[in-house]
């Protein structure tokens, strides 16, 4: 039996009296692409931040590559590339400088780092903006830079929080192409979104979260079977999440 890459066991997180996510169990295998679906405030970001070791689960454990996400953050970060919901960058540093800084922090050798940055800048097509301060970037540009930073050290797992929110159709297209390339490359991807159509196009499996609980997880076909409808993911989502909203 092989060990799954990501393992969430009974993960619960409370903010004071408020329970953001309750008893989440989920495993993700190598090379899988999983979409985390759910309405606003369902606990998607909290889940991802617990995987990143930013937050400590109130109960249960999260593991990536067999390492505890909170206690062994150091090991986990070698495997993971992360794009936050709204990436905030250091003031007074340009995009290029940020890439160089992050590469150095990941311990990439200089020559390899230079090549990698060159490649990413070309792929993302932001050679023009590379010398501008990152805080001046538009929202889409910030997302692109964040994604470039996440991909810098060629991680085994990408954790993306709402990768396409705030992006225009062009940027979204580029993003999707990039992610597809990563998928064929064998990278495992966990991303949260509320765009059904996009999720359906990319993911192997979807996990639907509503009202702080995992409502269902599986391939689109499995979810369909579970609900005995033959709609698309959007209809499944409404059928599952809608119940809890009302």
């Amino acid at each position: 039996m092989h060990e799954p890459l990501v393992k969430l066991i009974d993960v619960t997180r409370q903010y004071g009296q408020f329970t953001a996510i309750d008893g989440l169990n989920l495993t993700i295998d190598n090379g899988e692409v999983i979409a985390l679906l759910g309405p606003n405030g369902a606990g998607k970001t909290t889940t991802l931040r617990m995987l990143m070791g930013h937050l400590c689960p109130s109960r249960g454990h999260a593991y990536i590559g067999g390492f505890d996400c909170f206690a062994q953050r150091y090991e986990v970060m070698k495997l993971v590339g992360y794009l936050p919901d709204e990436p905030v960058f250091y003031e007074y540093l340009s995009g290029g400088e940020l890439l160089r800084f992050m590469g150095k922090m990941h311990g990439l050798p200089n020559v390899q780092l230079a090549k990698r940055i060159e490649y990413l800048v070309e792929t993302f097509d932001f050679a023009d903006a590379i010398d501008e301060y990152a805080v001046n970037y538009s929202r889409g540009m910030k997302k692109k830079l964040g994604l470039a930073i996440a991909l810098l050290h060629e991680p085994k797992l990408l954790i993306l929080d709402e990768p396409s929110s705030g992006l225009d159709p062009f940027a979204t297209k580029i993003l999707l192409e990039l992610l597809s390339a990563q998928i064929t490359h064998g990278t495992t991807i966990l991303f949260s979104t509320h765009l059904m159509e996009q999720a359906e196009r990319l993911c192997h499996r979807a996990a639907i979260i509503g009202n702080s609980r995992l409502l269902g997880v599986g391939t689109i076909a499995e979810l369909r079977q579970q609900l005995a409808t033959d709609g698309n993911l959007e209809q499944i989502f409404f059928a599952m999440a809608g119940k809890t909203i009302n």
């Binding site: 007074y92 290029g96 800084f101 590469g103 922090m105 780092l113 230079a114 010398d131 301060y133 001046n136």
Partner: peptide, 19 residues
């Protein structure tokens, strides 16, 4: 919003202290 751009375009690596 912030001063226009960073002027140097060297590809020196940037450690924590450098940053």
């Amino acid at each position: 919003a912030l001063a226009a751009t960073a002027s140097n375009r060297t590809w020196r690596p940037l450690g924590l202290l450098g940053k």
